[in-house]
């Protein structure tokens, strides 16, 4: 219940946060809803936390050059209730409102969730399906990583050491786009056993992404082929075989929802 002792620094700017990360075993603290539970169980024992929650540049949602830009430290609850999201990127509102519970949504952040890259997290499937890019900043400045190149394995991402996610950029889908996130929840944690995000553009192009079924979320536009190549996770709520079955069921549900 009590983490190992650590140092704490509240960063006022991203640059300050990046500088603060450079020494030793430091970790970024945003909402803390993935990190603190692990620290309380002493599964994670950083020597320093750099708190980015009061960096205002990392918060908020805006429209910019045909993109919706979501600050990395924006909470799930803020995303779920933001008008701009509801109007132009409703799948994010839908997905965000399915994460954890209300208390978790009030503090957990999109950036924290993506950096954590839990194989059963909801955001990974959502950002993959909408062709998002993840904007990160490190010592060498900013760069943009395509969502499709971001998730590299179990709890691992394309982020380099001491790199911080600063924003998630999503091209605003054209009028007439339909999108949905369909989730079969693990009954205890309510993380995804299968999460399937589907975006169907007016020209018929369809993006499909899955989370929960393998080491990391992935795009599967050619779903049939993709699913036959997946190494499915297995636990006492869902064996690999059952997950595979559910993936097909939830794909079908999602596709039906965007017709």
């Amino acid at each position: 219940m009590i983490p190992v002792a650590f140092d704490y620094q509240k960063a006022k700017t991203v640059d300050e946060a990046i500088a603060a990360l450079s020494n030793g075993n430091s970790k970024i603290l945003a909402g803390g809803h993935s990190l603190l539970p692990a620290m309380k169980l002493r599964m994670s024992q950083p020597s320093k936390l750099v708190d980015i929650s009061s960096i205002s540049a990392l918060k908020g949602i805006k429209e910019e050059d045909g993109e919706i830009v979501i600050g990395a430290a924006t909470t799930h609850a803020d995303i779920a209730s933001e008008k701009l999201i509801k109007n132009k990127l409703s799948i994010f509102a839908e997905g965000a409102s399915m994460i954890g519970d209300v208390q978790v949504r009030n503090h957990g952040t999109i950036g924290g969730s993506l950096a954590h890259a839990d194989p059963a997290g909801d955001w990974p499937a959502l950002v993959l399906a909408v062709d998002a890019t993840i904007e990160a900043q490190g010592k060498n400045g900013k760069r943009r990583i395509k969502a499709t190149e971001f998730f590299t394995g179990l709890f691992s991402t394309a982020l380099q050491e001491n790199e911080i996610i600063i924003a998630i950029r999503v091209p605003i889908p054209p009028e007439g786009t339909k999108a949905t996130y369909q989730k079969f929840s693990q009954p205890a944690s309510r993380f995804a056993i299968v999460g399937c995000a589907v975006v169907r553009f007016p020209d018929g192009k369809t993006n499909i992404a899955f989370t929960g079924i393998s080491d990391n979320a992935f795009r599967a536009d050619n779903a049939e082929a993709a699913l036959s190549a997946v190494i499915f996770l297995s636990d006492h709520y869902a064996s690999a075989e059952y997950r595979k079955h559910l993936a097909k069921v939830y794909l079908k549900k999602a596709l039906q929802a965007v017709v």
């Binding site: 219940m1 603290l29 539970p37 936390l49 519970d101 208390q103 978790v104 503090h107």
Partner: peptide, 24 residues
Amino acid sequence: CDTSGCGACTIHVNGKATKSCTML
């Protein structure tokens, strides 16, 4: 609990329901 699951520690922080076991 110790995994942010039970909600017995819920308080309001700046007007929002918060699990005070998952905040420093």
